[in-house]
Amino acid sequence: MEATQSEVAVDVRDLRMRYGDKDVLDGVSFTVKRGEVVTLLGPNGAGKTTTIEILEGFRLRSGGDVRVLDADPAHGDEAWRARTGVVLQSWRDHARWTPRQLLRLLGRYYLPYSTDEMVRPRDTEDLIRLVGLQDQADQKIRTLSGGQRRRLDVAVGIIGRPELLFLDEPTAGLDPHGKREFHELIHALVDLEDTTILLTTHDLAEAEKLADRILILAAGRIIADGSADALANEIEAKTEVRWTHKGKAHVHATSDATEYVRDLFRQHATGISNLEVRRASLEDTYIALVQKYESGYQTETPTALEEASR
């Protein structure tokens, strides 16, 4: 029984969250398989943070079934906690501590949860090297840059060798260089060991870069679920055809560009230039999807209430 269940790391069914008379999550369902990297993508206020905090066991849900590593996170015990990792956005906590001090101390909490197959915690020095903080390891944490701080956050998140790692808007506030470094770190983690990762972002490019699978959350529901390619196909992606005919520019949107272009040449044997066929980018798909949902299913957009952290 254990074996069949443990294929799925996260199983969410009909998750609901209500604040006052506002439904922030209105029947969210999805699963994350072991070893998958899944991104929860959505505009601000869509309920991403609420969702991930419920899965982390930091927030109680209003309704629905949630299983995270075969347990209900609302009642997850310390042994369950030891198998999950949370990458928090540090701000000014432990300002006087050094990264080495903090990692040593936090690592100790995992000692009783070490097994033969899963040695916990990770060695502090290995971890410092992995996140590239060798030069800052003995510096006070308050002197770290934003990017360095975020790498320390990741180190704290993975110190117990979690089977499942949560990251909520991990690159918010990072500059492009910091973002790239962060993405490389996540790739290294995924390659190194089979960690299941669930992260939220409102940055589409980031979702595309990191995830095996993207879930789009809008207006409190999952409105799309698939790989970046599958998503682009899922919505009847119109392709844009642009050309110039006798000095005049034309644009036409079609779902079958090949057929349209064939027709075009049949009609005008000569005189066509600057032909350009452009498939909808993932971004177009995303924006179209979100707009469709927010306008169609929701008369007013959800408030930014639970997304105050930006």
């Binding site: 982390e56 030891a82 928090l88 701000w91 000014r92 432990h94």
Partner: peptide, 12 residues
């Protein structure tokens, strides 16, 4: 400042 949240995220 999140110190307590950090504590909450580790077992015990």
């Amino acid at each position: 400042d999140g110190t307590l949240l950090r504590a909450k995220a580790v077992p015990g």
